[in-house]
């Protein structure tokens, strides 16, 4: 059976791959959007944090024989702590300046982090080895590796938990309020500076979590994050800063769009996101789910 000249099974296979990629985009852009909402910093280090998560996961396994599941918890914690350190030492100094300074600062930090990793490990990819979940599931139209199924489930769980935390808890209410007017929330007696640190730590921990998830399916290298960060920026711009759900839906949607393009017109697959971005911005300058500002 064909759909516009492509066998249904081939199409579904690509869509599943697109769904997995979309999950990575969703988790990454979620962290980026949360950080931007709270800190008003466009965090360029996000790709490097993703790479650090993947690298830590690889290094844990190869040097210390620490298994994947432990690193899935440890790597985000380590990267989150590293993020909090960066926020306290550097980012805190640029909040009162134009967005551009935050962007330049985090770009500089990215170059340092990636440079350090490159000089230690080179740029060639390191294979993680066999994924921690073996086997394949027969979906009828497609034999899907169980590990990829896990990536989808884990990403959706993390996105759901983040949504719950921000939209349904007291801490989340502080966060949403501080996004609108941080100094007033602080005047109510909330320790906003600490909340800002923790938000940055949490955002980059999400990136590291995505990195650990990605390690077994992508090659781990110093430059792993570079290609992703540009796409993730596009996701955040297209989705708009308005809602968590919007960011997640946009991330997954763009993964699928990219996959479809690979099927029907592979030459355009690496630029289709940016085409979508241009079209969306022409119609809705604040993004699909964005509010004002």
């Amino acid at each position: 059976m064909d759909l516009f000249g492509v066998p249904i099974t081939a199409l579904m296979a690509q869509l599943m791959i697109g769904l997995v990629n979309g999950c990575f985009y969703a988790v990454l852009s979620l962290g980026l959007a949360v950080i931007f909402g709270m800190l008003h910093v466009i965090n360029f280090t996000h790709g490097a944090m993703f790479m650090l998560g993947a690298l830590l996961s690889w290094a844990g396994l190869h040097y210390f024989n620490i298994n994947y599941w432990v690193m899935l918890v440890m790597a985000p914690l380590i990267v989150g702590a590293f993020g909090i350190l960066l926020e306290r030492l550097f980012l805190r100094r640029v909040y009162h300046l134009d967005y551009l300074y935050g962007l330049l600062l985090t770009l500089g930090l990215t170059l340092i982090i990636e440079g350090a990793v490159r000089s230690a490990y080179g740029v060639s990819g390191r294979p993680y080895g066999p994924p921690p979940i073996a086997g394949v599931t027969n979906l009828g139209f497609l034999m899907l590796p169980n590990y990829r199924l896990w990536v989808i489930v884990a990403s959706l769980l993390v996105c759901g938990a983040t949504w719950f935390m921000i939209e349904r808890t007291r801490l989340g209410a502080y966060l949403r309020a501080a996004t609108e007017n941080a100094s007033l929330v602080e005047a109510f007696g909330v320790n906003v500076p600490m909340m800002v640190s923790l938000t940055f730590g949490f955002g980059v921990a999400l990136a590291a979590f995505a990195g650990v998830l990605a390690a077994p399916v992508m090659q781990v290298s110093a430059l792993t994050g570079q290609t992703l960060i540009v796409i993730v920026f596009a996701v955040v711009v297209i989705g708009g800063m308005g809602s968590i759900l919007g960011t997640v839906v946009t991330g997954i949607g763009l993964g699928l769009v990219e996959a479809l393009t690979k099927v029907y017109y592979p030459e355009a697959s690496s630029m289709v996101m940016f085409l979508v971005m241009v079209l969306v911005l022409m119609v809705r300058p604040n993004g699909l789910f964005g509010g004002g500002e």
Binding site: A173, R176, A177, T179, E180, N181, S183, L184, E186, A187, F188, G189, V190, N191, V192, P193, G291
Partner: peptide, 24 residues
């Protein structure tokens, strides 16, 4: 002291612009 500590001495502040959070 930082703002949040000052507030905790028992101050309630109602700013001129009211500061109602639109998304809440």
């Amino acid at each position: 002291q930082p703002t949040y500590r000052i507030a905790r001495h028992g101050i309630g502040y109602c700013p001129e612009e009211r500061g109602i959070f639109a998304s809440l």
